[in-house]
Write a protein that binds this DNA or RNA. Structure first.
Lengths: 328, 328
DNA sequence: TTCAAATATGGAACCCGTTCCATATTGAGC
DNA sequence: GCTCAATATGGAACGGGTTCCATATTTGAA
């Protein structure tokens, strides 16, 4: 592979001059510039980014950690984060953490090894402790990690409230709720706490089913849904993330229930999969694009030493009312 | 940041010795090793991966190019490719190419700039020409790019045949088909050609609707589906990729049709979204995991200079029959 | 005891760019 | 014609590792 020295030799100039031509920095005469450019073409020279990065102490790569890129919610998150990172000139490295727990640690270490300039993490597996050790740009998506790491999160309490109000409006009496494991401290639990609180205050029964994190495989959710259905076949409302709520709705339809007559459905997340089901479902749409935008903005500020907000940026979820919560 | 020299100084040894301890290479006495390790801990030393990579001329990063990570099919592809790359010790960089066309070129250039060791491409936007210029490890997913670049693809002809046979079995007479733009030479077109061929041979009418690549947004597909439905409301069968076929089914259900009585549905891809709809749909499942495994295996062989198959590895799609093609 | 092989270690050279410093030349202003 | 600034250029030092070579010491077999 041709290096800068080869170019310099062919063009009869010094390496510094070649570098200046490549980077358009310092002074170069038109004549020299042409000689160098000709030599570069002749040798099909491409600068070695690794050498540059070594000197510049940056790679322009941001690692994005998610439990499962295959999951519609995280797929959307990754998509928009990638687009946004790209706008700022960063490359996106991704990491599924579901398979092996220590993956997360591995990627955090890449920060210290200087292979990535920052980490945007949307996972919950690792002990907070590990994060706090690292004094490098880290942004958390929807998770509190100590007081030093900025978090971008959605106002899930509001989301739970929206869902609860909508459910109350429909007059449902017995509701199945699917939520993440409560042992993991995640802002997303707020919606379920709030939902349950409001419902209970109004004398509505809520049965909550917890789903383990890191168990995003289809069989597991199918089993959970079946169990929930069988436990309380009299339920007339369901609230949960897209896949679970829809799977529950499917189960109910198979069992002969009618939606919305016998069962009201509210999906949390509102990813594209909610667009292809019938009857059309009411969703609490998460502001995924904004989540991505904010997290990348924060990341960029951290990297460039600009001021940034340490604490939660609460983005607003939105209720989109459709047929599945229509009454009469 | 502490470097290897600092460690060497603290431990009163040479830099070579420190390097040997870190890499467990060459000879080191137990005593020295301990001194060095102590010094490393004391300084919280972490080797700079960039410097290593510069010397080793590799980064261990593979770029994965897809039109849209948010799309369920590609999300699955990326997921399994990432898992597989991880097994081989590589990191995954992703790139959505939908937004800007030149992104694809940009990532190809990263190969030459040595920021990535290889590219696995699942996109169709760039001129083949650009690819052929590059003498670096490239693996194509489901796309022919010249004679030098290995391709991993699915036996789409077989997929089309499976769909056609199933559709014939149901006795549908007028079928709507959604397919990618025919101007892009993609193996995936084979399924539609084969499907249409077989159906036509049996005197069945097939109306094909082409979807532009790089238009994976929801509105666009909704419009296309509406148009298809309105053009031929008498259709009694639909065949297309998950999202389009399901969206069509939804439209039909809204319009009062019954599935499978009035409309048979076959989804191509069979991603998880087909698991949450009612009625349950028949799918031609693409072997995404195998696709990922094979492409990564090829990539690894290319990188390590082992033998690898240049030509198509045809993986088999699978018909999974469900309610949407049930007759009586 | 002797000598080759094994073990141990330091440090220079290298990977491939970028930047800085030293030096040279040109040109404008007086 | 002289001076200072602007322009131009080469090359050493550097970034932070790895490897190789030279040299020193220890071990084991004869």
């Amino acid at each position: 592979m041709a290096g800068i020295k080869d170019v310099a030799k062919i063009a009869h100039v010094g390496v510094g001059t070649v570098s200046r031509v490549i980077n358009n920095s310092g002074y170069t005469s038109e004549e020299t510039r042409e000689k160098v450019e000709k030599a570069m073409q002749q040798l099909r020279y491409t600068p070695n980014e690794l050498a540059r990065n070594l000197y510049r102490k940056r790679t322009g790569i941001i690692a994005v950690l998610v439990p499962d890129v295959g999951h519609p919610f995280f797929a959307q998150v990754v998509k928009y984060v990638e687009i946004e990172l790209n706008r700022y000139g960063y490359k996106t490295m991704i990491c599924n953490t579901t398979q092996k727990d220590n993956n997360e640690l591995e990627y955090l270490q890449m920060l210290e090894r200087r292979m990535v300039d920052g980490v945007i993490t949307g996972v919950h597996s690792l002990d907070i402790h590990e994060y706090l050790q690292i004094e490098k740009p880290i942004v958390a998506l929807d998770r509190y990690i100590g007081n030093t790491i900025p978090v971008v999160s959605v106002d899930h309490k509001k989301g739970g409230q929206l869902a609860a109000e909508e459910m109350l409006r429909t007059g449902s009496r017995i509701i199945i709720q699917f939520q993440g494991a409560s042992k993991v401290e995640s802002p997303s639990l707020d919606r379920h706490i709030e939902f349950e609180k409001i419902m209970t205050e109004h004398g509505i029964t809520v049965y909550s089913y917890e789903m383990e994190w890191n168990r995003l495989d289809t069989n597991y959710s199918a089993e959970l849904v079946n169990k929930a259905y069988m436990d309380h076949p009299e339920a007339d409302g369901v609230f949960g993330t897209d896949l679970l709520a829809l799977e529950y709705m499917k189960k109910a339809l198979i069992e002969g229930k009618k939606v919305p007559e016998d069962l009201k459905v509210i999906c949390y997340d509102g990813t594209y999969i909610t667009n292809v089901v019938y009857p059309e479902v009411t969703v609490i749409r998460q502001p995924i694009e904004e989540l991505a935008k904010e997290s990348v903005r924060l990341m960029n500020n951290m990297i460039n030493g600009k001021l940034y907000e340490i604490r939660i940026i609460s983005l607003q979820p939105e209720l989109i009312r459709r047929r599945s919560t229509q009454c009469d």
